[in-house]
Design a protein around this nucleic acid. Sequence first.
DNA 1: AAAAAACCTAGCGCTAGTCACAGGTTTTGG
DNA 2: CCAAAACCTGTGACTAGCGCTAGGTTTTTT
Lengths: 289, 289
Amino acid sequence: MERTVDSFVACMDRTDQPSKSQVDFRTSRQGTICISSIEDVRPAAEALRDLARDLGNLRVAACANIASKMAMADADGNALASDVFGWPGSKDQWWKKPLLALSSPLTFACRYESEPFWVNADGIRTRAPNPLLDKIDLSHFHDEVNAASVIVIPVHLPFGQIGVVSFSPIDEGRSDLSREFDAYADVLEYQGRRFINGYSRVTSQRPWIPRNCRLSKREVECLRWAALGKTDVEIAMILNRSCATVRFHIHNAAIKLEAVNRSQTVFKATQLGYLGSVAVAAPGTHATA
Amino acid sequence: MERTVDSFVACMDRTDQPSKSQVDFRTSRQGTICISSIEDVRPAAEALRDLARDLGNLRVAACANIASKMAMADADGNALASDVFGWPGSKDQWWKKPLLALSSPLTFACRYESEPFWVNADGIRTRAPNPLLDKIDLSHFHDEVNAASVIVIPVHLPFGQIGVVSFSPIDEGRSDLSREFDAYADVLEYQGRRFINGYSRVTSQRPWIPRNCRLSKREVECLRWAALGKTDVEIAMILNRSCATVRFHIHNAAIKLEAVNRSQTVFKATQLGYLGSVAVAAPGTHATA
DNA sequence: AAAAAACCTAGCGCTAGTCACAGGTTTTGG
DNA sequence: CCAAAACCTGTGACTAGCGCTAGGTTTTTT
């Protein structure tokens, strides 16, 4: 067990601030944000705002679904960005611009990263190296983010939904958040995640109720290749089966997932994690027969 | 601000055990699992095992990708389930059976839930109600899970990958984990998540490097409907555009995502969260012109 | 041993992918 | 302010690929 502990100590990057972070974590638990109905959204957002302000004079921005242009709102339909988090209403209300969600480097990075990170114009700082983030363009960082630096919490949810909570300094000068990130990333992640989780739960209607989606081995196998863009002729060659067989399996999968065509079948299977991160399954699959 | 605090207190479900959980969280931070290379997997797994044992005499089971039949292993290729977590090698090694991952109710539930929950033969207990989990069949619970009860931590990752860490009592009699869940769910979630995060980072090769995937508004709009199974004729009617225009947009999206056909385009767009949780976008979209 | 799944195959009609073309609208940048 | 560059809209036709039904074989479950 000693060996184990040692290796962890070597990994730790915050041992220099033990007492502070402990207190934060305690605070976080007592103020745990719990959203059980739409009425809880407002107080939960206010608590998140207060937490961010008290911890590091930070301002909150949140998006429950980066694929949606819908701004987050409370039970009365008031936008959280302006009414709670205190973003100036003048500056042409960035959170209403649908283009931003599609082009912001922050949104972009959230697609590829699962852990908290912080960003300024000089680069993206993750806990562990992520080469996928290296090629993100930060040249218009300040214009797109409305801050000189920001701590970002990506929140990956079921059904392929991605949310994000970000924290940027209220006084716009600060471009270094390394200290705040080291000290508060964990608590901000915890609270931000629960906030987005709860908000999604009470707002998004999930109309799709799959009856029996126990896909068989072959069905998933065929769907994997289909998701990679292979035609059924190609899949048939890969799996050493007939073309009709491949179609049959995919068709069966479509019935189980209540999908009407191949695209929707792939979509639903992806949402449910059946095809997750297919890095081209092991070679030699054509030797199964 | 008083109102805020009050509403949270009403939501809190663990105020009866304040001191205990605080200690746990402190412990968790000092023993933070950090996997920066494949060699760290083994000690990280051992630490997770020790944490589970010390907290509640629990045994760990983990899966980094419920879509893959690959068992988690350390740098030398040893299966973590048998070599570290201590699952008996005799009982025909459940973690090697690919069918289980497709049919286990635990795996199933992870597709629909983002927060920790615990299960026994009587039902699934989530923090907040989740109607999607109600219809899951638990009649063969003990056979499929190899335990009378279990705490489950779903881990939703980028690219549509879903992982899971579960904790079940070492002595197989216990079927009630409500106390352990209330006290340790947060720390188990934190540690389990970081473990799966780190493992995925050092093991899974992500060969796909999207060059320019700034999809335009129309492209995403068309892809949404395509993912819902609409044909391009239907999409054209919905958006009040010509059929060829719809094809044009989807084709452009395919080029940006480096996809070769519609299915792969939908797949990649889903992985990147462009279509996340499409609950049929707001009506009236045909009035944009 | 019976039953139920899962698996494999064939052929027909329809959809989607692609090409070449022409022009309007919004954003971006000098 | 103008120009360039994206982005958006539209036409028409051909071919490869997909959706679907029907029926037989193998494997798993009861």
